[in-house]
Each structure stands twice: as structure tokens, then as C-alpha cells.
Design a protein around this nucleic acid. Structure first.
Length: 521
RNA sequence: CGGGGUGUAGCGUAGCCCGGUAUCGCGUCUGCUUUGGGAGCAGAAGGUCGUAGGUUCAAAUCCUGCCACCCCGACCA
């Protein structure tokens, strides 16, 4: 019945403008070969060009939506594979719920509905027709009885479903994850960081006690943090959101916050303790061991394709992407160098031999034997695409039993013996993984500024960047005011935050702990 | 929703004020020479100028309507 759907967004968006000429200049200048805008000159322009040039994604001809290209999607697949394993290792299973949510379900948890109301796309009709001018129009006869919301998140449809699945404590806990797309009609979009439609995973769990649900919430936060640090190579701060920043419908929102190279913070994942809010809204009760009827306790947690944005912004440089070996779709690329066909044969057979040797260690290796591009071009291209290690092999090497090994992260090049190359490559990849994390961590650590006065606070925001650790009086009003004045928000109250007496950096009222402020994406 | 812009080849553009069927660069294709850091030369292909109408002998250019997209603000899980 729904094979032809039309949706209307409730809000229209009128665009705006500004100095287009600036952009045009950049494109003009850089249109030859690859566009080169330096990271230090214009960070966001650098980011956009990188996403495009590295062939990760592009703007679709649909407002606010992106096409994730094969190379970008391959990174997402690596992210998915690892997270999926970690979810399963912690006892979760995957399922899939509908894209469309009847408006009446959506309304049930008021705060959740209110929080998302302004960015929902709504399906109102189920059929098109050809009008008198032979134009395709929405068939006014085909108006739906009840509008359908395209999910901005799935709590509503999932809790409506859970109602039928949970009767007894024996049905709990229910530990389910879903890989899906969601749609949030955002006003300003940026590839990967914020798009109208995006891919993510959302875990939705149900528990028989508050304690157990809180434990789950924290466990998943730890899973995210471990993933971010050990796989993405991005250090994160685990913390709790303030009431203002909390997920609509949650009792408590935990998050991991990363710091990008331009000094702006990025929320990389959230894990929510939902209390009994959704159980009450959808009337999901279970009978306890003691025979009492109680509402179920819930959590939800998610990360999205935004992580690809984080990956780019945390490590990459003016030459392009820098991928951590643990998430690189191609970990090693082999580029042959040759003049004659005869040389090509020799070089190729050695290259293929090396490839097999590396693959035996479980590495992902590409032998770039395209005869349509020159070596120099390939070097630049694979650097742009962030392949962690490159092996160059030519006639000279064949004679000497060597290859050239080039590291993407440090740009170091060494001639090494082919003998024992597999272990050398493996250990170098491990070193790269460690080294990019360390680099990001020391950058992050040096970007946390302890601030004790409002003057200092403003000074750091203007002249430095990164996190500001400052006392806050705990009120939403102060938080709002600071945001209004500086655009900085409270990113989180770090977990295990030391308690200390102090006064709020803005209001001067007493405070018991410091919180982390930053400008954020 | 308030303000400001733009639609010309795959991409970026010139031409528009002052009407005469379209400029240049990148990319693409072919051939030869090249190949250890983004190759060179020669040739070629590619355009209903967003769309509908109007004015005119003649419209990318002038006029009107429509559509789409972009930037700033508000907004942002």
C-alpha cells in the first residue's frame, strides 16, 4: 500500500546568502588538479574539499541529503563491523523497525515529541496522479487518515512494539540494536556532521530495575569510548549532559565528547537513561518476581555517520585524509614503478607475492596496477585517501631485494628489505594507530583550559580554542546566557569529576564542581 | 519565516548593462612520447543558456510568472 509515498516537510526553508565570491575564488583557483585549501586557512572549506576530493561523499540533488560514495561507505562498513561485534559481545541482538511512525504513537511521550517536532518530515499522502496538464501531482483523494512521521529516532515505534513483547521479568532484559537511517529536517547541513538523512545505530533496551538500566547506559558509553579511542584514534571525554542539552525524553544523557583540530568539540555518541518515561507513555509493564506490576526501565544509545566526520576532522592534514589503520578500508597500497613491459612483469610478480604475504596476516592490501595513471599521481591520490602505508616497488628494488615503505601519518619514507616485510608492515601499522591517537590526545590535553574568571573565559574563547574547565552555578539560565554571549555550550559534566568549592565563572554564585565548556559542531 | 543572491558542457566560468545562436580553464576521449612525487604535445567530442510565456526580423541578453539551489539570521539530540 505504501509503495508510492510522498512526504511534505512541514517547514519550508528559504535560503540565504553571503559572500559567494569567496567560495568561487577558491574553486576557481583550485579547480586545476585537486583543490587545495589549507587546514589552517579555512578549516571548514578544507573539510568540505577533503570530503569531496577523497571521494567520501557529495551533496545529493535532494536538499540536505548526501550520497555516501563507495570509499566513504567502506569506512562506515568498518565502523559498523567493529561496533556490531562490540554490541554482540555485550549481549545485544539486531532487529529492524519501521521507518514510518504514526503520529499518534509519536505524541505519546510528550517531551520526546516536542523535542523533535520542529524537524520532522511528515507523510501525508500515499498516491500520485497525472493531472490535466500531464503533470505528476499529489492525488488529493489519497490523503492519509493519520499522518506518518519519518523517524527522527525510533523510541516511539519501538516502545509501542515492546509493549507486546514484555509481560514478565522473565522477558527482561531486552537488549536490541537497530542499524537504520533516520531523518531530521535540519536547517544547516554539512556532509557527515549534520545531514537531513543519516545512518546510525540505535540501541533500545528494557530492564526490570533502574540500577540495571543505568548500568547498561554506562556500559554502552564505555563501549563507545573504547571504540572512539582504540579504533578511531580519537580521545574522548565521558560525561553527563546538563538538563538543557539532555535528550528529549531522557532522565539522564551520557555522552562522549571529542575535540577536533580547529578546537571545536564534537559530540560523538550518546547513551541515555530513559527511566520509566517511555514505559509509562506506552504502558509497558512487567510482573516482577514478587508478583507486582511495574513499569519497565529503559535505555537508548546511538552513534551515526557523524563519526566519519570526526575521523576526518581529528586526524587529517593538507595532503588529505589520515585514517587510523584499524578503520582504513585499505591498510596498505602497493604502487608499482616500471618503464617497460618486461619491468612491469617482474615488479608485478614481486608485488603480488608481497600482497599475499600481507593478506595472510589479515591485512587489507591494494595493488594499484592501473596503467592509466603515473606513480606520482597514485602517491598523491592514496595520500588524499588516507591509506596508512604505501609500498613503492620498482626495478631498483627488484635488484636490491627492497621496497620503499611510506607512512601516511608522518610522511616518513624508508627503504626496507623485502625479507620479513610482513611483520615490519604489521608492526608499523600498529605504531601508526598508536601514534595518531597519542598526537590527538596531546593536542586535546593541551586544549583544556582551566579558567577562573569571566574575562579569562572570554579570552580563551577568542584567542585560544578547545575545552574550558570552569565553575558553573548549575542553573539553566546561566548556561543559556553564556551560550548567548559566547556561543559556547556546556559539553558535559565529566564522569568522576572532582568536587571542589568555587564560584560560577559567570554569575559568581557558589559551585561545587567544574564543567567543560566549548564551541561545538 | 526575515534578509540577500545564483541558475550557461561533467565541474568552475565569460558573455547580459548596450539583443545578431556562446568564451575560457579543469575534466573527458583519441594518438604519440612518458612513468622512483600530481606528465608533455597534437587533435576531438560535449551546450533545448533552469523553466513557461511575452516583446522583437532576431533573445543567454529586455519584460512577466514559475521552479530549483546557495549564503546570513532564527534553529540545531
Amino acid at each position: 500500500m505504501f509503495h508510492k509515498l510522498i512526504f511534505f516537510c512541514e517547514r519550508k526553508h528559504f535560503m540565504d546568502t553571503f559572500a559567494l565570491s569567496n567560495l568561487q575564488k577558491i574553486f576557481q583557483i583550485n579547480n586545476m588538479a585537486f583543490e587545495k585549501v589549507k587546514r589552517s586557512e579555512n578549516y571548514s572549506e578544507w573539510y568540505n574539499n577533503l570530503v569531496k576530493n577523497a571521494d567520501l561523499a557529495e551533496h545529493a540533488d535532494v536538499k540536505g541529503c548526501m550520497v555516501i560514495k563507495p570509499y566513504g561507505y567502506a569506512i562506515w562498513e568498518k565502523i559498523q563491523a567493529q561496533l556490531d561485534k562490540m554490541f554482540k559481545d555485550t549481549g545485544h541482538v539486531n532487529a529492524y523497525f519501521p521507518l514510518l511512525i504514526p503520529k499518534s504513537f509519536f505524541e505519546k511521550e510528550e517531551k520526546n515529541a516536542e523535542g523533535f517536532a520542529k524537524e520532522c518530515a511528515v507523510v501525508t499522502h500515499y498516491r500520485l496522479k497525472v493531472d490535466d496538464n500531464r503533470k505528476i501531482i499529489v492525488d488529493p483523494e489519497a490523503k492519509l487518515e493519520e499522518e506518518l512521521i519519518i523517524r527522527p529516532t525510533s523510541e516511539a515505534i519501538i516502545w509501542n512494539t515492546y509493549k507486546g513483547w514484555i509481560q514478565s521479568y522473565r522477558d527482561l532484559p531486552l537488549l536490541i540494536n537497530q542499524w537504520a537511517n533516520v531523518m531530521r529536517w535540519e536547517m544547516r547541513t554539512r556532509l557527515f556532521l549534520r545531514t537531513s538523512e543519516f545512518l546510525w545505530q540505535e540501541g533500545h533496551t528494557a530492564h526490570s530495575s533502574s540500577d540495571e538500566a543505568i548500568k547498561e547506559t554506562k556500559q554502552m558509553l564505555d563501549v563507545y569510548a573504547e571504540f572512539a579511542e582504540n579504533f578511531m584514534g580519537v580521545p574522548v571525554i565521558k560525561g553527563v549532559k546538563t538538563e538543557n542539552e539532555r535528550f528529549a525524553g531522557a532522565v539522564e544523557t551520557y555522552c562522549i565528547e571529542g575535540l577536533m583540530q580547529d578546537g571545536k568539540a564534537l559530540q560523538m555518541g550518546t547513551s541515555h537513561f530513559l527511566g520509566q518515561n517511555f514505559a509509562k507513555a506506552f504502558d509497558v509493564k512487567f510482573q516482577s518476581k514478587e508478583g507486582k506490576l511495574e513499569h519497565v526501565w529503559a535505555t537508548s544509545w546511538g552513534v551515526s555517520t557523524r563519526l566519519i566526520g570526526a575521523l576526518i576532522m581529528a586526524h587529517s592534514d593538507d595532503e588529505g585524509l589520515v585514517l587510523p589503520p584499524n578503520l582504513a578500508p585499505i591498510q596498505v597500497v602497493i604502487v608499482p614503478i616500471y618503464r617497460s613491459d618486461e619491468e612491469l612483469v617482474k615488479v608485478s610478480s614481486k608485488a603480488i607475492e608481497i600482497k599475499k604475504q600481507l593478506e595472510a596476516l589479515g591485512l587489507s592490501v591494494k595493488f594499484d596496477n592501473r596503467d592509466t595513471q603515473k606513480p606520482g599521481f597514485k602517491f598523491a591520490e592514496w595520500e588524499l585517501k588516507g591509506v596508512p602505508l604505501r609500498i613503492g616497488i620498482g626495478p631498483r628494488d627488484i635488484e636490491n631485494g627492497t621496497v620503499e615503505l611510506a607512512r601516511r601519518d608522518t610522511k616518513e619514507k624508508h627503504v626496507i628489505q623485502i625479507e620479513g616485510i610482513d611483520l615490519k608492515v604489521k608492526s608499523t601499522l600498529e605504531e601508526i594507530q598508536k601514534s595518531i591517537f597519542e598526537r590527538a590526545r596531546s593536542f586535546r590535553d593541551n586544549s583544556i583550559h582551566i579558567v577562573n574568571s569571566w574575562e579569562e573565559f572570554k579570552d580563551v574563547l577568542e584567542n585560544k580554542s578547545g575545552f574550558i574547565s570552569a565553575h558553573w552555578d548549575g542553573t539553566g539560565e546561566t548556561e543559556e546566557k553564556i551560550k548567548e554571549l559566547t556561543k559556547a555550550t556546556i559539553r558535559c559534566i565529566p564522569l568522576n569529576n572532582p568536587q571542589e568549592e568555587g564560584v560560577c565563572v559567570y554569575s559568581g554564585k557558589p559551585s561545587k564542581q567544574r564543567v567543560l565548556f566549548a564551541k561545538a559542531y
